[in-house]
Amino acid sequence: MPEGGQLVDHRDGRDVVLRLRGVRTQFGDNVIHDKLDFDVFRGEIVGLVGGSGTGKSVLLRTIIGLNQVTAGTIEMLGVDTATLHGRAERAMQARTGVQFQDGALFSSLTVSENIIVPVREHAGLDEETMRDIAALKIALVGLPPDTGEKKPSELSGGMRKRASLARALALDAELLFLDEPTAGLDPIGAAHYDELVKGLSRSLGLTVLMVTHDLDSLNAVCDRIAVLLDKRVVVGTMEELLVYDHPWVREYFHGPRGRAARQEQK
Rank of each mutant, 00 (worst) to 15 (best):
R162H: 13
L155D: 02
D146P: 10
A135F: 00
G148T: 06
A168C: 10
G157M: 09
A170Q: 06
A173P: 11
A166D: 04
L125P: 07
G189S: 15
L176I: 13
A163D: 05
D179K: 05
D126Y: 09
I188W: 11
A190E: 11
L171S: 06
P145K: 09
D132F: 01
A166L: 11
G142N: 08
L136D: 15
L175I: 03
K137A: 01
E128T: 15
D179H: 06
R162M: 09
A168D: 08
P152Y: 02
S164K: 13
L178E: 00
E127M: 12
G148Q: 03
A183E: 05
P145M: 08
L175Q: 04
L165T: 05
P144Y: 11
A166E: 06
K150Y: 01
A134R: 05
A173H: 11
E154G: 00
A134W: 06
D146K: 12
G142M: 04
I188G: 03
S153E: 07
A173R: 12
I138H: 01
G189V: 01
V141Q: 06
H192A: 14
A191I: 00
L165E: 12
P187D: 11
G158K: 02
L169H: 12
L171I: 05
P145F: 03
D132R: 15
I138G: 03
D186C: 12
L155A: 00
T147G: 07
G184D: 02
D179Y: 01
R167C: 10
G142K: 09
A163L: 11
E149C: 06
D172C: 11
L140Q: 15
L178W: 00
I133M: 12
R160V: 12
R162N: 06
A139I: 07
S164C: 05
L169Y: 14
I188S: 11
R160E: 00
R162L: 11
T129L: 04
G148N: 08
M130R: 15
G142A: 07
H192L: 14
I133K: 09
D186F: 02
L171T: 04
A134D: 05
E180K: 03
A191R: 14
A135N: 07
S153W: 04
L175S: 02
H192W: 03
A134G: 04
S153A: 13
L169D: 10
L176M: 07
L169M: 10
L176A: 02
R162Y: 12
T147W: 08
L155N: 01
A173V: 11
E154K: 10
E149M: 08
E149K: 13
K161E: 09
G189N: 15
